[in-house]
Design a protein around this nucleic acid. Structure first.
Lengths: 196, 196
DNA sequence: ACCTGAACACCGTTCAAGT
DNA sequence: ACCTGAACACCGTTCAAGT
């Protein structure tokens, strides 16, 4: 699988990086380890990416693209609130599909280097509800902070219980929807008071 | 200030760690740099803390304790929603007082090693509103994800504009309250539907 | 109780050079 | 276009030993 000694293209590097991420976690996704897994010297990676941050941005974008592809061609709901919930659920599923996915995407987004697609989709849904651009931006940020924080917590607990320890209350998947509906309901109340 | 060559107590180490954090950021708060700043060998730190995670937990707890002390003896509001807002505002102010404060506290909380005080205060306020324990827990997590995410973003942008670059829209402090009120309003709606 | 000195097994990145 | 080899300036942690 390591294809020791071959030459690679950007897409190969990203693909192997996602496998290393899923197998060993973000902390062990080092340039040196990734190079070893590719059968190549660490310095070879700098032919494909100027630095590690840009590599991680490409990995995060690929992770999100795969999550989007996994959804298939199901269209987004018409209702803005359902559309917001669907975008957040797809983002969560995408990140849950790879170990430390939430930490990766949140880090990349903090750098401002990628992972911009869910942002745009949320903005569209919130504006379609009739929110002012500034209010939509506030709601969008609150939603994303919630999703990243919640899924990062989920993955931390997944790792902790996978590494043995105590199986402390598996935390149902409905927990995600409950917290999300809090933020959506708060956003809806903002909408009503502006329209009446 | 480095008191080169002296012997130290836990509290000295934590104090200098907070100064290193504020001056150079979390990424540069290494055991080796901290030791150098204390005028001591890196291995000496392991007399005071078993590992870096536990050191960071102590630093985060001290940061929060100082934020609480800065508030003085102003009592919490009686109204639950105002109390929630006050706890979140104090948490934000505490973290904003040190560079990368939000990243530090969020990391420590993810390890489950400290920073538990704001959690308890939020839980108390939400239960006093009449929420079921499970609903209170969902709201508490949503609130904390929002606060950590928002303040981490604020500090990222503070660093970016401090390091020069463009002064892209200073992002008013009221932005924090706006997003927070979204989550609080969502929580309140949950309360009404349960009580009527 | 608090620290030194030396070591182990790592990092990200640069750069001249090779094919 | 893609990679090697060697180096630079770092990491966290352990451990025997010193005072």
């Amino acid at each position: 699988m390591a294809a020791a000694g071959g030459r690679h293209r950007r897409a190969d590097v990203v693909d192997v990086a996602l496998r290393v991420l899923d197998a060993y976690g973000l902390a062990d996704l080092s340039m040196r380890r990734l190079a070893a897994e590719l059968g190549v010297q660490p310095s070879a990676l700098y032919h494909h990416f100027a630095n590690k941050q840009l590599l991680l941005a490409a990995v995060a974008d690929e992770l999100l693209a795969r999550g989007r592809a996994a959804r298939g061609d199901e269209p987004r709901p018409d209702d803005w609130a359902e559309r917001v919930a669907a975008v957040c659920a797809e983002l969560r599923d995408s990140m849950l599909a790879y170990r430390d996915g939430a930490e990766l995407v949140a880090t990349v987004r903090a750098y401002g280097l990628g992972a911009a697609v869910p942002e745009r989709e949320l903005d569209e849904a919130l504006r379609s509800a009739g929110l002012e651009p500034e209010t939509a931006a506030v709601a969008r940020r609150a939603l994303l902070h919630y999703v990243f924080g919640h899924v990062a917590d989920e993955q931390t607990h997944l790792q902790a219980s996978a590494a043995g320890a105590i199986e402390d209350a598996p935390r149902a998947s409905s927990d995600f929807e409950l917290g999300l509906s809090l933020v959506i309901d708060g956003t809806r109340s903002r909408l009503n008071s502006a329209q009446l």
